[in-house]
């Protein structure tokens, strides 16, 4: 029987550094939530997602979001089969265990909404029929923060459906040397099948049973509530953020083999839960503030139990 730490090791065998990203992907898998990755091109966002899908032996699909993408390109469509004289359903890339939505903000709202509906409901409607998406089902979406011309920013309500948003940073010098050494020739094979889809579903059930003490729960709630009255914040995080923070804390405890969530879990994961759920006041531009600093201040303003 595999453990989630096996998947973590498999990802580390492929990805150089990016500990926070790798951990967030595994936590998303355990908590059954979707993860948004933000980073410049070429920092291993796609590779990390492919490595994750390979490690659990699931079906992996990648959708490159572009301005001319249609909802049917993601969800699927019904086509007329001339041989049988009937309409047949062709399932789109959404019907996979790990879906990589590359540059999600490059497609118009209609396509984003089709994807996000599937993320929320775990079902998709093609024609008149509604189909369940496979389980486990995880969407990993990427966004490039700089090249924003011609993009369609995701509204807060849709961003709220992502369990966490992780910033994929540039590697350190040592890491960059290791990347060049490891990937200069043929791309190394991904470590496939270290766990099964049945394992993942078991992890999700067991992680749900991880104990969260009332003090730890209240700490998570206090951090989310602090986001609503913080300086330079126009709209704070919703109660869904508190749910996400507790779910991630449980997943982290499970990943580390603990039977209980600790204040460290909440504090470490709070920024990833909050950063995409907050909208900022216009004064942040005038006062030359940085959203990451605001989030850090929110988390630091609440005393751990």
């Amino acid at each position: 029987m595999s453990r989630p730490s096996d998947v973590l090791d498999a990802l580390h065998a492929t990805i150089v550094g990016q500990d926070e990203v790798v951990e967030a992907l595994v936590l998303g898998l355990i908590a059954g939530g979707h993860i948004l990755l933000e980073g410049t091109p070429g920092v291993a966002k796609t590779l990390a997602c492919r490595a994750l899908a390979a490690s659990v032996g699931g079906v992996f699909r990648r959708v490159q979001f572009t301005p001319d993408l249609l909802p049917s390109d993601v969800v699927g469509t019904r086509i007329f089969d001339q041989k049988t004289g009937e309409f047949a359903t062709v399932f789109g890339p959404l019907f996979a265990n790990v879906v990589l939505a590359d540059e999600i903000n490059r497609a118009p709202a209609k396509v984003q909404s089709a994807l996000l509906e599937g993320m929320q409901e775990r079902r998709a409607t093609i024609g008149l029929q509604t189909h369940d998406l496979p389980a486990p089902f995880v969407v990993l979406a990427t966004m490039n923060p700089y090249d924003t011309d011609g993009t369609y920013p995701l509204p807060l309500a849709q961003l709220d459906r992502f369990l966490a948003k992780v910033i994929v940073r540039y590697p350190t010098r040592d890491e960059e040397q290791a990347i060049v050494d490891r990937f200069s020739g043929d791309e190394p094979a991904l470590r496939a099948g270290v766990a099964t889809l049945a394992d993942v579903q078991r992890w999700q059930r067991e992680a749900h049973g991880v104990f969260v003490d009332a003090k730890v729960r209240d700490y998570a709630i206090d951090i989310v509530r602090a986001s609503r009255s913080a300086e330079l914040v126009a709209h704070g995080a919703s109660p869904r953020a508190a749910l996400a923070l507790v779910a991630l804390a449980r997943a982290r405890a499970y990943l580390e083999g603990r039977s209980f969530a600790a204040p460290d879990d909440v504090r470490d994961l709070a920024a990833a839960v909050l950063r995409h759920r907050i909208s900022y006041d216009d004064r942040i531009a005038i006062e030359d503030g940085h959203p990451e600093d605001v989030v850090r201040e929110i988390v630091g303003s609440v005393r751990a139990p």
């Binding site: 104990f211 003490d213 003090k215 039977s259 204040p263």
Partner: peptide
């Protein structure tokens, strides 16, 4: 101490 403070009641 962490385990005793935040661990489940059964343990």
């Amino acid at each position: 101490a962490e385990h005793a403070a935040f661990g489940p009641a059964r343990a």
